[in-house]
Simulated scan of single mutants.
Amino acid sequence: MTQKTVDQDSGHQHADRNPWLSLLDWRRRVSKLYEDVRNSADPQAAHTTWKAGRDALFGGHLQSPLTPEARAAFTGLPYWPYDPGLVFRVPVDTDVAPERFVIQTSAGHDMPLTRFGRVTLPFGTLDVYWIDVYGGGVFLPLRDATSGRESYGGGRYLLDTVKGADLGGAAGGELRLDFNFAYHPSCFYDHRWSCPLAPPANVLKVRIEAGERAIP
């Protein structure tokens, strides 16, 4: 029996019969969602589009991190109101010494990372990592004073380009960091997922009341 999702196009139905094709479909949809964000001239409108797109994926896609029971009762992810004061374009400081290390994921697996830069924000600094596996990708996780209370204790992700979560920036090394797009990793919803957690260097002392939250 083939499980069908909200989108009933023939390609998506075919993906439903194969978990690898289903994962490919998920990745394509996430990448398209972030492409729309990068191409939008209105960040707040792009944020609304992003939230609607994530709700559609979480509620109707086989690769949703939600359990089947949670998916059946799903009505949408909770977010803080959009805050235009938490949008930055910052250069990556690459004068910091590169450091390669292995962190533990939520499931106790090893994840190799290379710290290759740092960004400075009005409320602190965050290290920028390269996920040191085949293909690689920029990874920027964070924890803040809401972590473990109004958001996941293991932190949230701002960028994870391996998964298509890329807000863009200038080719010269500048990153667009919009904290309204901070989101929870899959392990927040179901422990069967294994997710790298925010390292100690990426813990902010302030409250980042933007992006996805744990409670409405």
Rank of each mutant, 00 (worst) to 15 (best):
H47T: 02
A45P: 10
L197A: 14
P196I: 04
V203R: 11
R207I: 02
G154I: 05
Y152M: 10
L121M: 14
P199C: 13
A201F: 11
V162P: 00
R17E: 14
A198V: 05
A145T: 09
S186K: 08
W80K: 04
F123T: 12
Y152K: 09
D190M: 06
G59E: 06
T5A: 03
D132C: 08
P91H: 13
A15S: 10
R54F: 14
Y134F: 11
K32D: 15
G108S: 06
G136R: 12
K205N: 15
R143P: 00
E174S: 09
A210I: 00
K205A: 15
L140E: 07
F88N: 05
V96P: 00
V162W: 05
P78S: 07
L177Q: 11
E212L: 07
R118L: 07
L197G: 11
H191Q: 15
R118E: 08
V102G: 04
P122E: 09
E209T: 13
L140K: 05
P185A: 04
H184Y: 15
P141E: 13
P84K: 09
G59K: 04
P185M: 03
S147V: 03
F139C: 05
A72E: 06
G59I: 09
L86I: 01
K163H: 13
A56F: 05
I103E: 08
Q3T: 11
R29L: 03
A201R: 12
H14N: 15
A165Q: 02
D42M: 06
R27L: 15
L77C: 03
I208S: 00
D42C: 05
V37P: 03
T114A: 11
H191P: 11
K205Q: 15
A198F: 02
N202G: 04
L204N: 01
G173K: 09
G168P: 01
D9M: 08
T49C: 08
I131P: 00
L121G: 08
F181E: 06
R176E: 13
E174C: 06
L66C: 07
